[in-house]
Nucleic acid binder design. Sequence first.
DNA 1: CAATATAGTTGACAACGGCAACTACATATA
DNA 2: TATATGTAGTTGCCGTTGTCAACTATATTG
Lengths: 312, 312
Amino acid sequence: MPELGIDQQVSAIRAFNRFYTRKIGVLDGVASQPFSLAEARVLYELANRQRPTATDIRKELGLDAGYLSRILRNFERRKLLRREASQTDERQRFLSLTAQGQKAFAPLDQRSSRDIAAMLNDLSAGEQKQLVQAVERVRRLLGDKMESKAPFLLRFHQPGDLGWIVYRQAILYAEEYGWDWSYEALAAEIVAQFIKNYDPKRERVWVAEKDGERVGAVLVAKESDSIAKLRLLHLEREARGLGIGKRLVEECVRFARQSGYQKMTLWTQSILHAARGIYKQGGFKVVQEKKHQSFGKNLTAEIWELDLKRTT
Amino acid sequence: MPELGIDQQVSAIRAFNRFYTRKIGVLDGVASQPFSLAEARVLYELANRQRPTATDIRKELGLDAGYLSRILRNFERRKLLRREASQTDERQRFLSLTAQGQKAFAPLDQRSSRDIAAMLNDLSAGEQKQLVQAVERVRRLLGDKMESKAPFLLRFHQPGDLGWIVYRQAILYAEEYGWDWSYEALAAEIVAQFIKNYDPKRERVWVAEKDGERVGAVLVAKESDSIAKLRLLHLEREARGLGIGKRLVEECVRFARQSGYQKMTLWTQSILHAARGIYKQGGFKVVQEKKHQSFGKNLTAEIWELDLKRTT
DNA sequence: CAATATAGTTGACAACGGCAACTACATATA
DNA sequence: TATATGTAGTTGCCGTTGTCAACTATATTG
């Protein structure tokens, strides 16, 4: 990939800022007639909070206190706003929209939604999804802690998932541990064998998704009639520490029990600390260790096992 | 994937707009002291165009003509701006920054760059790349025709590329033709075999990138000492029609000739019209056809060949 | 209790920015 | 060639937006 220098990155971001500033300007439709931009923003806050104080809004929007005071007085005069004195602090007053205020906000809100819907409508379904994912990625990268509605979701596999697993594992282990292409070969081989002999009743893939993007996966393969093998567990960096790995392994164990296996086994490397922690937590025990040279590094391989008959 | 309704998409975009508006506000540092927002924007345009007229700027920024006129007069009074009468049209005057104007613009520009650089600096290298890619994707989706500096770029393979090929092919053919998971099995198998027996001198992978993202790939595998096999050619939808497929195949043919193969062969399906067109253009000929049932569909497979000794 | 901080208000005032009338030149039409 | 229409840019008018600082009233701190 042609590495971009920091300057090029900066100018890419600046270009985006100019572009998007204009885009938003167009979407705002030169501010919604009866309200100035600042008023519209205040209105939005009033509509989307429960009984804020003036200071809450001032801090959120970074407005001048005097200016805000006048905007609010104006709203009150127009009977859009109600102010109720606080019991605990007589300086502050709780703000809320009146029914009339709600009514005034609605079209403004709808217009904005309609404009955006129209914009989305020019895109195909796939592009829409890409757009939403891209903007959410930007927000997440720039540190907006979005309370993702669902923290994460597990599902069975879909077309492309197994290729994705090879793709991501190869990159992850190359970046983090410097493993060479032979690891990708191994992963591809495992996946190819898995699909070719796929037994839906006794084998399964789980993919973890967060905000619509794949963030991890694992698969259970049949080693023998009584032994299940857990393979290719991995989590994307941004999804670690959320308990997703634990859930994936738990699902595997549950499935293996249900499918009548006696034992579950897995093969891993001693340096994969995060994964090891998860296995340990899941009740697996190391039963064998072996130094070897693979993937361009000196490694210590480990075989772990879990007895599925015992209820831990 | 949990399909988002249009409403959820709209609200995701709106949330982003609010978030990003604030972000840009912060980056602008409450407008750069000696200039108002509008002035700063005008200054930016003046600095980044060669001899625009007032109307050019007015249209670009959507400013009121009177307002702009005053801003420009103000700049001229401050000796930041030079206006030269046009020969061809005596109504208009060409605008350009004086040396002093450049000097006034520089810190403003630097500040903006510095702020963005600082923001980027809080991210890891990988995250920076993701951010740039995400904003560029947004721009592209929203129809900003960015003259991508390089239309596209071909490179050899890196970790993850082969997994990526399986991943994307499986999804593409599932979406476009409804092929089932057995195609993914085949692709994974091909890739696994390819890596396992990889012969750097006589085998090769090309990946096409556009704006830093993979958009297509192909590989040349050794069928026998004298026969090369072209495999797994594909292009992402957004990269079609740009001549990338043609380039990929040309590279394959060139490489195969250079590596001493006598003949190049490939296997494809009659319904893959786009790919077929590229093969035909590359001089390949169909030498065999066969109906078969695979990937959950009734298909007609074709074997194509190209004699590498003839110079077409 | 005095000192200090916080919530919110008010007046003064500079700047922003939209509108419309206007000049000067250019282009189309007959 | 005369006339109409269009475009580039300027100017005055004027309401709106938004900043600053002074001020009141209540809370908090030590």
